[in-house]
Design a binder for these strands. Structure first.
Lengths: 206, 206
DNA sequence: AAAAAATATTGAACGCGTTCATTTTTTGAG
DNA sequence: CTCAAAAAATGAACGCGTTCAATATTTTTT
């Protein structure tokens, strides 16, 4: 049985998260003041800080949800029986990119990335970095799966190539969120262009 | 003949820049307050803002100097007659990394990168991004030079591979500055591991 | 050389994220 | 039901980057 205290806590937590994400999307992260979030949630500023360590922490809940979902979708893609490296790779990368704006705006992504670089010792940054590493590992896993099925050359170091590809995917995503004019199709086209030669080189009997 | 006004201006500009870089290195970027920088430079806070748009702008002078020097050194490396892709590539990348801490600390790099992502419409970010693109282009140029000399396979898209490699180099550098315990040799080792298979794949008669 | 115009300096004030001493609410023991 | 201890809520105050109206200095004009 949840105590009165626990009930109120859960309720406030939900109200604060809801108010924050609503405001972030409506007026942007920077313009959403803690005072406004607190007011919309019906609590005081101090209470906000009782529930969240700081403003940036509010983002991590969303980023985390986003990446967890895309990781699950990625596992499904890896399990498919692709017969070409390029097809498999672009399906995985495409899923990453297509999903990226489901919960987060470009500005929210920029803020999250910016925070994770600026203050690497914070829990925020550590969680963000951990998610990045799981994504990187997933790309490696794709190459390994393709290698096991004889699609990728046996002599290819899947970790090396996977990390290389993921870091490029990630860097291009940074460029994407930095440029409000760039759309996801443009992003995919560029990344495809960069990876086609690589896909060709690592393909069996390529 | 410099007027009295121009003299004073140049002098103050120098004193502010000197005070800022000294303090950034001594106490770190975040802990160096504008008030302190202004005091050390013998001007008021308002005057600081007369010379520099904001705190972040102080970094760009340093970042710019750093990257310009490394670009020049890179051109010299490209002009060399390497006979192996891996050697040439690692010499260029190694130069980037070795030079990186000459003027900037890891914290300063983190701040610069963080700012360039968080506020992409600012002059700061635009300058930073432009420098990044010149570095990326230089890596492409290396592959092209090697291709012209018959070291890299003729059918390789040098822009694609160059961008892929540079984006990985850049992403790994972000990991490096995020981790105070990581040293440049560790960084080089990881990047070498990631790129060796690629170097092998693109090599003529590889 | 004095007055007017142009330019530069100044520091108090502002905005906003964050902190913390105080007050209020909830809990469980007697 | 009472009350003391624990937990939670509060909002005024703080720190620091940034702005701006007022003041001071330099240059130009007459």
């Amino acid at each position: 049985m949840p105590s009165l205290r626990a009930q109120k806590k859960a309720d406030k937590n939900r109200r604060i998260l809801e108010a924050a994400t609503t405001l972030f999307r409506k007026v942007g992260y920077d313009s959403a003041r803690i005072e406004d979030i607190a007011e919309m949630a019906g609590v005081s500023v101090g209470t906000f800080y009782n529930y969240y360590k700081n403003k940036g922490d509010m983002l991590m809940a969303t980023v985390s949800m986003e990446v967890e979902e895309v990781l699950a979708a990625g596992d499904v893609i890896i399990a498919k029986k692709h017969d070409q490296v390029a097809n498999a790779l672009f399906e995985l990368i495409g899923k990453y990119y297509d999903h990226s704006l489901t919960y987060l705006s470009k500005e929210m992504w920029r803020t999250a990335m910016s925070l994770s670089i600026a203050q690497p010792e914070t829990p925020f940054s550590k969680r963000y970095t951990a998610l990045d590493h799981r994504l990187s590992k997933q790309v490696c896993d794709l190459f390994r799966a393709l290698q096991d099925r004889g699609i990728v050359r046996k002599d290819v170091d899947c970790s090396a190539i996977g990390e290389l590809v993921f870091n490029n995917v990630n860097m291009m995503f940074i460029e994407f969120v930095k440029d409000e004019d760039m759309d996801i199709d443009g992003l995919k086209d560029q990344v495809a262009r960069q990876n086609i030669p690589l896909a060709h080189l690592v393909s069996q009997t390529g």
